[in-house]
């Protein structure tokens, strides 16, 4: 992603890839017998066609795009990746382990991951906040919104 042109081209390719994916699955939509001209595939086909057109437009205009290097935006991909994995694990364990435990652990770890480099993580403070937020949210949902969040291992309240 060094130049605007490259970025625009990559985007064009992504659009075409999405279009291809969507087109294939549109043709896999089952049709009912006697479906007339307008059926469950009509609108998806129209959208797929639009995506192809947009992808091509994007690639065509990208040819004339700026080739000057973009400002270097350093993305801290390590932290992004750690956060993404943490979120996936959190959601995966949300139901089996239960809201309280997973949320506490998620918050605690997420606070640590996102702590600015020039600041030391304050574990005690993070722990307390994680605990308080989880308990507070659970109680509010359970007792005032009547929504039972996954209880998992803690089934006693």
């Amino acid at each position: 992603m060094k130049t605007q042109k490259m970025q625009d081209q990559i985007f064009g390719v992504i659009v075409l890839a999405v279009a291809a994916f969507y087109t294939v699955f549109t043709f896999l939509i089952p049709l009912k017998e006697g479906s007339d001209i307008i059926n469950a595939r009509t609108v998806p086909l129209l959208l797929a066609a639009l995506m192809w057109v947009l992808g091509i437009c994007q690639l065509v205009t990208a040819r004339k795009a700026d080739t000057k290097p973009l400002d270097k935006e350093a993305r801290d991909l390590r932290t992004v990746l750690k956060t993404a994995v943490l979120i996936v694990v959190y959601i995966a364990l949300f139901e089996p382990v239960g809201f309280l435990i997973t949320t506490m652990v998620y918050l605690f770890l997420q606070f640590i991951f996102l702590t600015p480099a020039d600041k030391k993580p304050n574990y005690l403070f993070y722990g307390i906040i994680s605990l308080v937020v989880s308990l507070f949210v659970y109680t509010i949902f359970r007792y005032s919104l009547d929504i039972i969040l996954p209880q998992g291992l803690i089934t006693f309240f």
Binding site: L93, P96, V97, G98, I101, T102, V105, L153
Partner: peptide, 9 residues
């Protein structure tokens, strides 16, 4: 700890 939690679950 999280992992352990899963197993227990």
């Amino acid at each position: 700890a999280l992992l352990l939690g899963t197993l227990a679950g």
